[in-house]
Every structure is written in structure tokens, then in C-alpha cells.
């Protein structure tokens, strides 16, 4: 379970900066992920999480700093390069084709084939079998691999994408807000798959702004705020509350919860006042009604 932080990290960023015109998206950020650990990348919206993962997954290249894959400085020119290096990214909602079947989605772009020459064909039976087996390993038992992915729940869709990345030999799994759009129970399901992936020896980079999802599963936490890093902490070094506080949301969240309580209180008061006003109005209306009935 615990991370083996000795040895070479699978992926490491050293003092990376990225600029978009005059916007500093990332400044001097370092992070790493080792095999068999879940490394949580935390930060509020606009903290630079997306830019950071796009650098690791080959969408952007860093303007300054270094990207190292298993200790070797590397430069990715495309997402395909990153994929070939064993870095698979599961994007929040961009990973699947809703109207396609589960097994066709699973093998999209890497279809198993049978036969030779012009008779080479997509081996549907094998695709179905492997999809079923791989999903079963993740603890998902699909009813029918021919059903459209769009019919699955959000958590199951994420899980299909994760299972696919694992099957195709990913060593590093980058999960972009996999729990963001999910309900409590579904998020739990996805967290369990993340734990499964870690148990199978993958390095997982888990991006989220939800500390309650990150803290139970994370081994280390890198905190980003406005394009800069607050540093990386092991779980033993910080409490959940400290993480929340560091995430730029800390005090604001406290403030917000006070505000919400205040809203609730004033709402209650307002509702009572409204009720009273309604009663008065009703009474008044009755009076008006009676008086207007009388002949002038």
C-alpha cells in the first residue's frame, strides 16, 4: 500500500514553467510519481493543474524546466509519444465515444485483428472476451459488452477508461478530475479502481479539487495555487484540514460555510415573514372583497 518513494520516479517534472503569452500558467513547479503510489495533484480552479497534466501527457511542452521519464530527460511531441512511453491520461469526459459499444471503445485505436492480408479483420469475439475479463479484474461486471458506453453510469465510464489504460500497458495513469461529476457512491467506486490500479503497481496521478476524495486514497499530495507549487507532502506530514487550508480555499471555505449558515437562517426568517404577510394579505383581500360587494 505505502509508496516506495526510493528509486527512480516513473515521471518527474523539475522546475517546470509554462507561459501562454503574458499569462504565467505554471512557474517553477516540481513533482514526481513513483510506481505503486497515488500522487494527488490538488488545487482550485485556475491553479494550473490542467496545464501540468497536459505537459506530462504530451499536449504541451514546458517552456522551462525538465520532464524526466524513468530518470531520462524526455520531450514529447504529441499525446501519442506519451502514450508510447507508458503514460496514459484519462480525461474527464473526453475518453469515450458514448454511442459505441463497451468493447469497441475499449479497443478503439488498438483493435485486435485476425486473418491475413485483405481478410484481416477486427476480432470482435476476442475484443469482447478481453474487455469482459479486464473489467472483471477491476471489479466491474458488465451485463453486455455490446451495449453502448453511453448507457453506463459516470463512474462505470471512468472505470472503463481506467481499465483500458491499464490493459494497454500504462505505467503511469493520469486521471483528470475523475470524480468531479460523480455522486458520492459513484466517486467511491472510482476511488476503489484507483486503489486497484495502484495495487497493480501503477503510478497514479490523481487530479482533483476535492480533498475528501484525495485524502483517503493519496500517498502524497502536491498542492498548486495560482500556477505555483506549495510543495509536496506525504500523508503522514499533513492532516486533511491542513490540506484544505492550503488549497487557497481554506479560509474562504470557512467563510463560505458561515455565509451559507447565515443564508439558511435568514431564509427561515424570510419564509416566516412571508407566511405572515400572506396571511395578512389574505385577510385584507377578504375585507376588500366584502366591501366591493356592497352597492355604491
Amino acid at each position: 500500500m505505502s509508496a516506495t518513494t526510493n528509486g527512480t520516479p516513473l515521471v518527474e517534472l523539475r522546475n517546470v514553467s509554462k507561459y501562454f503569452g503574458n499569462v504565467i500558467a505554471l512557474k517553477d513547479v516540481s513533482m514526481s510519481v513513483y510506481a505503486g503510489e497515488v500522487m494527488c495533484l490538488l488545487g482550485d480552479n485556475g491553479a494550473g493543474k490542467s496545464t501540468l497534466i497536459k505537459i506530462i501527457s504530451g499536449v504541451h511542452s514546458p517552456d522551462e524546466g525538465e520532464l524526466l521519464v524513468e530518470g531520462k530527460p524526455t520531450r514529447f511531441n504529441s499525446p501519442r509519444d506519451a502514450l508510447n512511453a507508458g503514460i496514459a491520461t484519462v480525461y474527464q469526459d473526453l475518453a469515450i465515444v458514448p454511442l459505441m459499444s463497451i468493447s469497441r471503445n475499449f479497443f478503439l485505436g488498438s483493435e485486435p485483428t485476425r486473418g491475413w492480408g485483405p481478410f484481416k479483420r477486427f476480432d470482435v469475439a476476442t475484443a469482447d472476451r478481453i474487455t469482459r475479463e479486464e473489467l472483471a479484474k477491476m471489479g466491474i461486471h458488465v451485463r453486455d459488452t455490446a451495449q453502448a458506453v453511453g448507457t453506463l453510469s459516470g463512474g462505470e465510464r471512468q472505470s472503463v477508461a481506467i481499465a483500458r489504460a491499464v490493459y494497454f500497458g500504462a505505467k503511469v495513469l493520469i486521471l483528470d478530475e475523475p470524480t468531479a461529476a460523480l455522486g458520492v457512491k459513484e466517486a467511491g467506486v472510482v476511488l476503489r479502481y484507483i486503489a486497484q490500479a495502484r495495487a497493480r503497481g501503477l503510478g497514479v496521478v490523481f487530479i482533483t479539487h476535492n480533498v475528501h476524495h484525495a485524502y483517503p486514497i493519496g500517498d502524497r499530495f502536491t498542492l498548486l495555487n495560482r500556477g505555483r507549487s506549495y510543495g509536496t507532502f506525504r500523508k503522514s506530514e499533513v492532516t486533511r484540514e491542513e490540506v484544505v487550508a492550503m488549497m487557497a480555499g481554506g479560509e474562504e471555505l470557512d467563510e463560505l460555510s458561515h455565509e451559507l449558515e447565515e443564508f439558511a437562517r435568514t431564509d427561515r426568517l424570510a419564509a416566516e415573514k412571508l407566511k405572515e404577510a400572506g396571511r395578512e394579505f389574505h385577510a385584507e383581500a377578504q375585507v376588500v372583497h366584502h366591501t366591493s360587494d356592497q352597492p355604491r
Binding site: P79, A95, P98, L99, L108, T113, V124
Partner: peptide, 22 residues
């Protein structure tokens, strides 16, 4: 029955996903 057919459906259904996946 061919990988190419799977790609046709893939690029039509979600071009971004298809591209990301190679």
C-alpha cells in the same frame, strides 16, 4: 469487421477521444 470501421464510428462519435487515443 475492420479496425478502420471502428475508427470511422470513433471519429464520428467523439473526435477528441479518438484523437487522444491515437
Amino acid at each position: 469487421r475492420t479496425p478502420f470501421g471502428n475508427w470511422i464510428t470513433g471519429v464520428g462519435g467523439n473526435v477528441q477521444a479518438a484523437r487522444n487515443i491515437g
